[in-house]
Design a protein around this nucleic acid. Structure first.
Length: 109
DNA sequence: GGATTGACGTCTG
DNA sequence: GCAGACGCCAATC
């Protein structure tokens, strides 16, 4: 069973997200060829079970902290991002497009 | 085993 | 440009 579950792939990729950077579900789904951005979010739902997965760096395409409610505390996600230098306002990442980290471009190319 | 839900995205109106 | 509907695959009920 050398093949890892798609969840593990998501964890590995999320772990590769640099400090002060954020990514979105579509990019991860596209890079891992999951076929659906929902799979990414679903996988990240178990990210806390895996541990060490900076899921707070993964947001939806709008830059919203959609999964903040899945965190132990809704404010934790925003606090973590701000702690990394990522400004978050109204539950949305400021300059999201600028801080966006695309695995396909950063890793594949 | 069928129906519903889910941290989303893209298309059409 | 904004709003609504559909599609995606997997897990849970």
């Amino acid at each position: 069973m050398a093949e890892k579950n798609y969840q593990i792939r998501v964890f590995e990729l999320v772990r590769q997200i640099p400090y002060g950077r954020v990514s979105n579900y579509g990019a991860i789904a596209d890079y891992l060829e999951l076929g659906s951005a929902r799979m990414v979010g679903w996988a990240l739902n178990s990210s806390f079970s895996g541990g060490g997965v900076p899921a707070h760096r993964v947001v939806n395409r709008k830059g919203e902290l959609s999964g903040r409610k899945r965190f132990p505390t809704p404010t934790m996600m925003q606090d973590l991002l701000e702690s990394e230098g990522v400004r978050v306002e109204n539950d949305r990442v400021v300059e999201f497009k600028k801080l966006f980290w695309n695995p396909v471009v950063e890793l594949d190319t």
